[in-house]
Amino acid sequence: MFLSADEWQIVDLSLKVSGCAVVFTLPPAFALAYLLARGRFPGKILLDALVHLPLVLPPVVTGWLLLIGFGQRGPIGSRLHEWFGLTLIFRWTGAALAAGVMALPLMVRAMRLSIEAVDRRLEGAARTLGASGWRVFWTITVPLALPGVLAGLVLGFARSIGEFGATITFVSNIPGETETLPIAIYAALQVPGSDAIVTRLAVTSVILSLGALVLSEVLSRRAGAGQGGHVL
């Protein structure tokens, strides 16, 4: 293709960071979506707002909060290091964390919509047929919500690919470790005469994002059960 080896490495890293971000964000995102769709508890509005916070907060603030929480001396970061020998700051894993946090609101939104669209009378029918709560959940609720879950995954992936502000604040720009597509583009823009690199990386970004959006839309339309709808 038209990318150089270094540029391929950037794309590769971006895909790795985003892939990890959505895979690890999926379980908490689904749990939150389920809670917000079905739960009735005090403080629900607050939880809803908290989940959406990364969407409206300046990304640099989110990055700074991650720095405080997950940094070497942060309350979470120091324990992760102590117990698991895991360091996030200035590592690609930290980039994945930042991307995951930024993708969370979009993922929760998509999944919540599809969980809300599940016909609860079908769950009642399953219970009359002898299904336990868990069986109803895994055989009725989850499969019926699946298109939205997949759409949320793809949407979260697209969001992760584009993540910039929180990432550069939290893990900085380290080529080969945390230099994802948007960060590489930004860095290249600072160097005179690198228009060609910027163009190639930007075109790659557009292709990836467009592909993910189209895929997400296709998934949510193909709601096997004739339910579901648009996520965007």
């Binding site: 009378r121 079908l122 029918a125 399953a126 219970r127 009359t128 047929l129 002898g130 299904a131 336990s132 009725i140 019926l144 096997g224 059960a225 004739g226 339910q227």
Partner: peptide, 16 residues
């Protein structure tokens, strides 16, 4: 789930 009712709903309510 344990009552063993065979419930036939007005709208069939098959799992789509």
């Amino acid at each position: 789930a344990r009552r063993a009712a065979g419930y036939v709903f007005q709208d069939a309510r098959l799992f789509p």
